[in-house]
Design a protein around this nucleic acid. Structure first.
Lengths: 119, 119
DNA sequence: ATCGTAGTTTGACATCCATCGTAGTACGAG
DNA sequence: CTCGTACTACGATGGATGTCAAACTACGAT
């Protein structure tokens, strides 16, 4: 039943670093749900399972968003047992677009604070 | 008689600086056509008319893209006679999200060079 | 073997989006 | 007033997107 990649679990397609397209990254981050996921991944600085995020959508929709993030090269997903660990591809993004991720995260933080303060 | 600033015939709705949303900016820039427009505006550092861009789409589509950029707060559009001048809202964007625009432009430049080199 | 947990897949649906063509509007020059 | 230029508005269309519900798969624990 289990394939020969048993310990690694199922294989998930990721773009190579060189294949990551800026437009796809921006598109991935232009969704509030996905931006929230990325912000949380960045602040925790750890790999998180999908279910550790408290997203106001169903599981199917979560799956969809995580896949968009993975296929655009923003996160890396790895199976560990029944869980699926999600990690930010910080090295790849920083290598490709130095400073971009930090600017984006800072911008998101700023806006978040601004919205919280100004209503 | 050509007046300096106020032709003021048609007024175009722009979001105030505080109304600009990061997600909308990212969405606006996630389209290749619009990213190209913004890059050109940035490198020229001047206001350009719509027709000064050499976009591989029809005029209707151009109008659409410029409107998305304006409504997201990335560019400012002003009528001058029959022409429509387009300018990057650098001050507003830098004020809201310091460093973001430059990081994005640098990322776009990098990718452009990478794609040109690696075919 | 059975079960529960975690996530996937499929199908459906409403919406949005990029694009086009054609017809229309605004403005300056003659 | 008429004409050309520059851009807009409208309608259409094919494709992507976000969302859900329901059925399904994979894995660890009991």
């Amino acid at each position: 039943m289990v394939t020969d990649t048993a310990t690694a679990g199922r294989a998930l397609p990721h773009p190579e670093r060189e294949q990551i397209r800026l437009e796809s990254v921006l598109h991935a981050l232009s969704d509030p749900m996905r931006l929230q996921i990325v912000r949380e991944l960045a602040v925790r600085e750890a790999e998180l399972t999908c279910s550790q995020f408290d997203l106001p959508v169903t599981k199917s929709t979560s799956t969809h968003h995580f896949r968009v993030l993975r296929e655009s090269g923003v996160i890396r997903q790895v199976y560990r047992g029944t869980a699926k660990m999600n990690g930010l591809r910080r090295d790849d993004l920083d290598g490709l677009f130095p400073g971009l991720l930090d600017s984006l995260l800072a911008a998101a933080d700023r806006q978040s604070g601004r919205l919280r303060a100004g209503g």
